[in-house]
């Protein structure tokens, strides 16, 4: 190898130090959440908070799951987040493709600027108009309402990100595919999407997490307990005069852990996708 031994040792040392710091920084509040979720009430409210639990208990989890709505909230969040991810990716793949390949067309430029402006509207102010739209469409208290809204939020960023990824795929590849008799849709499906898999995956993760965590529209557009999503469901433990920290944290842990585990697996897939892309490119 051309990179020297000393440089490599320093690099390994720095890498591990930086990683350790990052892991601690990222994990700390999460560990505190897990820790709190396992504490009895008397230890949660303490003047000397510590990670050490004298009497660990599963009581908080019991309280959360005693509310039989919680598993339903979870299912609803999976449907809404999954649905909006798929929908957003379809919409923004086509849009990103057009932004990347026909940047000089008027229509493309118009849509591009519209998307840009739509990123700039503060959510609090469009709450009421969106509520009115959803009511007129008969979509209040439905998953479709949230799927559409989350798509509208994530779409501009996804379109621009994917445009960036598609820009790196040479046009010659497309021309060659066209000469080989490959249709445009065939090109998008067989060449463009596989080659941009890491980018699409990253955007998919972005859409999913945005939808999974959203709170404001989740509670405003849903007037039906059976359709409620997780984040508003977690927040009921912040009562009018008292926050039930144990239950709030237990509910959050139940919401976060599956997604985190999902990521551990996606991570592998992401690396595979990147390697595959690198080999082909």
């Amino acid at each position: 190898m051309v990179i020297g031994g000393l440089e490599r040792t320093t690099r390994v040392f720095t890498t591990y130090t930086i990683l350790a710091l990052f892991v601690a920084f990222c994990l700390f509040p999460f560990l505190w959440m897990i820790d709190t979720s396992l504490k009895p009430v008397a230890e949660v409210r303490s003047l000397n908070p510590s990670f050490w639990i004298v009497h660990p208990t599963l009581d908080n989890f019991r309280r959360v799951l005693a509310d039989d709505n919680f598993p339903i909230y979870f299912r609803n969040s999976v449907i809404v987040a999954g649905g909006s991810t798929i929908f957003t990716l379809i919409v923004s793949t086509f849009c990103g493709y057009a932004l990347s390949r026909f940047p000089r067309q008027r229509l493309t430029q118009a849509v591009g600027s519209a998307l840009l402006v739509s990123q700039m509207i503060p959510g609090v102010l469009i709450l009421a108009p969106i509520y009115i739209i959803m009511r007129r469409l008969g979509l209040l208290s439905t998953f479709e309402a949230l799927i559409l809204v989350y798509c509208a939020f994530a779409m501009p960023l996804c379109c621009f990100m994917l445009k960036g990824f598609f820009d790196t795929i040479p046009r010659e590849l497309e021309e060659a595919a066209e000469l080989d008799g490959c249709s445009r849709l065939g090109f998008i499906y067989r060449i463009l999407i596989p080659l941009s898999a890491p980018g699409i995956l990253a955007n998919g993760i972005f859409c999913f997490v945005t939808a999974w965590n959203e709170f404001l529209f989740g509670y405003v557009l849903i007037n039906d307990e059976a359709r409620r999503t997780l984040t508003p469901g977690i927040m009921v433990f912040k009562g009018p005069h008292l926050t039930d920290w144990g239950a709030l944290m237990a509910a959050s842990v139940l919401a976060v852990v599956p997604v985190a585990l999902f990521f551990v697996n996606l991570q592998r897939f992401l690396i595979d996708g990147l390697t595959a892309g690198a080999v082909k490119g």
């Binding site: 009421a128 509520y131 009511r135 508003p232 009562g239």
Partner: peptide, 21 residues
């Protein structure tokens, strides 16, 4: 019964009222 955290109740009510609902 719709249970909503107090912090969010005001906002939700006003939005619903502004939306004619």
């Amino acid at each position: 019964v719709q249970n909503i955290t107090y912090d969010a109740l005001h906002n939700k009510l006003l939005t619903a009222l502004a939306g004619g609902d």
